[in-house]
């Protein structure tokens, strides 16, 4: 079994430069994730949650502060971190087993070991029998399973998930959430899930990190002390879900003044005159 990584983010700041002006994307993010923990990050679009994930995987490099995996600063991509993107990003010219094998291209294993590990992970995501299928022959949910297998095949210390089920239909999504939980438990791995689906965040996470936009900051961290597998219909579950949702619902009140129909009607009349 993989060794689960400890991830520490300390005073992380990140900015882009847009037309010569610095645009802060992430501000003062500090988050410490225990080995084997499942952390969900929720936030509306533009809160920098995907940028945070891209920094942890190493696809974005420049930042202030520290991102440490097992105490070592993260520099670039590495096989000790796996990622599943929102789109499956499989290579269409490779079969399922070849796509999973892409993860092991640079692994220090013999061909026989690689074959065995690939087979194990195809079985883990429930795709036995589809080894030689091409991506165009798979449904969206199956393609995402292959992407999960590819991300896990190196037995990384941390699995990063960037809205992995965002493009799937509701039924497939809830089924894959269960599957992901099973896989996470089987692998005993540290996982970070970025999503805009609060129910998904609460269903899967040990903790839910709520982020707010412009610039991206951590607003609150909500613990989910429910045993697994969680019942989405239970009272305790919906209480936590409502608690997280309340972090979003209060923003419009403070930021946006509601316009009553009468007021707008009057404004229209005035405009007509």
């Amino acid at each position: 079994m993989a060794h689960a990584g400890t991830l520490e983010i300390k005073n992380l700041n990140k900015q882009y430069t847009v037309k010569g002006e610095p645009l802060p994307v992430l501000e003062n993010i500090s988050l410490s994730i225990k080995p084997g923990e499942f952390v969900s990050i929720v936030g509306s679009s533009g809160c920098g949650k995907s940028t945070l994930l891209r920094l942890v995987i190493g696809l974005e490099q420049e930042y202030q502060g520290e991102i440490l995996l097992d105490g070592k600063r993260i520099v670039g991509t590495s096989l000790d971190r796996g990622i599943v993107f929102q789109e499956h990003r499989l290579f269409p010219w490779l079969t399922v087993e070849q796509n999973v094998g892409v993860g092991l291209l640079n692994a220090d294993l013999s061909p026989a070991q690689k074959k065995k590990t690939v087979d194990e992970h195809i079985a883990l995501v429930g795709l036995k029998g589809f080894e030689t299928a091409y991506p165009y022959q798979l449904s969206g949910g199956m393609s995402q399973r292959v992407a999960i297998a590819r991300a896990l095949v190196n037995r990384p210390e941390v699995l990063l998930l960037d809205e992995p089920f965002g493009a799937l239909d509701a039924l497939t999504r809830s089924h894959l959430q269960q599957e992901l939980q099973r896989i996470w438990e089987a692998e005993g791995i540290t996982a970070i899930l970025v999503t805009h689906d609060v129910e998904e965040a609460v269903y899967l996470g040990d903790r839910v990190v709520v982020m707010q936009p412009r610039p991206g900051r951590i607003k609150r961290i909500v613990d989910v002390p429910l045993p697994r597998s969680r019942d989405r219909g239970s009272y305790a579950f919906s209480q936590i879900k409502d608690d997280v949702l309340s972090e979003f619902s209060d923003t419009p009140h403070s930021d946006v003044k509601l316009v009553t129909p009468q007021e707008s009607l009057g404004a229209n009349w005035q405009f007509a005159w």
């Binding site: 991509t77 096989l79 990622i83 290579f91 010219w93 490779l94 892409v102």
Partner: peptide, 27 residues
Amino acid sequence: RSQLEVARVYGFGRVQLLFKLILPGAS
């Protein structure tokens, strides 16, 4: 670009990039 990122995540070298992504992708 998204496929090039996959190549970066899995640590493709130059030769791997050419023969595992660029040539098949352009085939």
